[in-house]
Design a protein around this nucleic acid. Structure first.
Lengths: 226, 226
DNA sequence: GTACTTGTCGATACACTGTATCGCGCGGTG
DNA sequence: CACCGCGCGATACAGTGTATCGACAAGTAC
């Protein structure tokens, strides 16, 4: 076929330069904006102006992308402070802050063994700061704090999501929850629960978190003193 | 059309009698056997010899099925014992046992506000047994224990799954993990972590869980005494 | 400069998901 | 006997993760 009738090659767009880092940052942006559901390989690829399959040059599987996302936010978790207690408290608070900044963390934290470089670096900070206490105590104690934080944060975020799912702010959520609970309590099947829910002062999320954390730290302190 | 040439009505199978309970039990069976991935509306329906859409007569959405599954296993979580400490410990242990019996719980626990009848009944047991301590302390304390358990269990199961993903038992998993960690430690970027991992005695899952739990309970005890 | 190899990109395809729609055929009511 | 309503499930749709593969660009051998 002669040149004249042969169509020009469709001017294909310059392939966007990619990197694992760019992919992960994009995925995190999407997740921050619209939750974990907004993170699909197609959507990430689209946000990068790239074919979906392109990503497989950088990650082997979606799971790996999630691993990378998790590890990336571990960069925000760098406890500081003097003495083991301050450091563990800081570990808890920074983890919680990270989760509040990236709600999707609630789905990932603790769900996979965090062995990426950032997670390890975070762990290193803790271990380094805890050299005052016995080698054998460091790991179990840190594990305990992490467990508490992960569970607590999960609960907080689950509640927040449930609130949002009703489309409303906290006040209206409780208003819609109230009648349901009252109806159940009216059956008389949950007397103790009912009095607690009705009579006890209700702490907010921050207070609840800190109270539990301080309890745990107190208990750790007692154990270390032995 | 005459009867003779009119085909018999295809002998449609007697519609299987269904119930929310049966659906949920089936879903749980599938999840127990093959994990959460084995729970899709189609698969549950197929296991019941039923069209997928049939389920929508009993649940409005898959989320609701998950809510029901979670609530169903709360039936296994009925703490017993004398005194708040025993009861809270029992709460923790029974929750953990349930999660070990149904690994998929790790994905659900704490991920949604547990407000089903079984979950409330479980809560009622706890509240009733905790009437010795101040009304205002009951909820935060229980919340703290729950947070710890959920985080801890999640970690345990994540580790177990990671082990299984390599297709091997614990020993071989550590063998395959070891070299990776050694390589990282060899870079000298994680000195404190390295010494802890290398030098500390490693507690098994039970010991780690209990140690953290007792710390938390100790801390709670101290707080209640004040 | 020309042929061949190499490797990368994205279109296409597959099996699967949750769920909306809808037509068929059975039950009960007029 | 006609009708209606409704419960069922076939079909459909948009979306998912990922395997396959054809086409093109760049690099290499002569």
């Amino acid at each position: 076929m002669l040149v004249w009738e042969r169509p020009e090659p469709p001017n294909r767009p310059v392939p966007v330069p990619l990197s694992r880092d760019l992919i992960v940052r994009t995925a995190i942006r999407l997740a921050d904006a619209n939750g974990m559901d907004a993170v699909s390989l197609r959507k990430v690829a689209a946000a990068l102006d790239v074919g979906p399959m392109r990503l497989y040059g950088y990650i082997a599987t979606k799971e790996e992308l999630l691993d990378l996302m998790l590890d990336a936010v571990y960069a925000e978790i760098r406890p500081t402070g003097n003495g083991w207690r301050e450091v563990l408290r800081s570990l808890a608070e920074t983890t919680r802050n990270a989760a509040h900044g990236h709600e999707w963390l609630a789905d990932l934290l603790g769900g996979r063994p965090g062995l990426g470089p950032q997670a390890l670096a975070s762990g290193e900070s803790v271990m380094a700061a805890l050299d005052g206490i016995g080698v054998d105590d460091v790991m179990p104690v840190t594990t305990a704090v992490n467990a508490y934080v992960i569970g607590a944060v999960r609960g907080e975020i689950a509640k927040r999501r449930a609130e949002r799912a009703t489309g409303l702010d906290e006040r209206r959520w409780q208003v819609s929850l109230g009648p349901y609970l009252e109806r159940l309590f009216a059956t008389g099947k949950y007397p103790a629960l009912a009095t607690v829910v009705r009579d006890a002062v209700h702490l907010d999320a921050d207070e609840t978190f800190r109270l539990g954390l301080e309890c745990l730290l107190d208990g750790i302190e007692a154990r270390l003193a032995k």
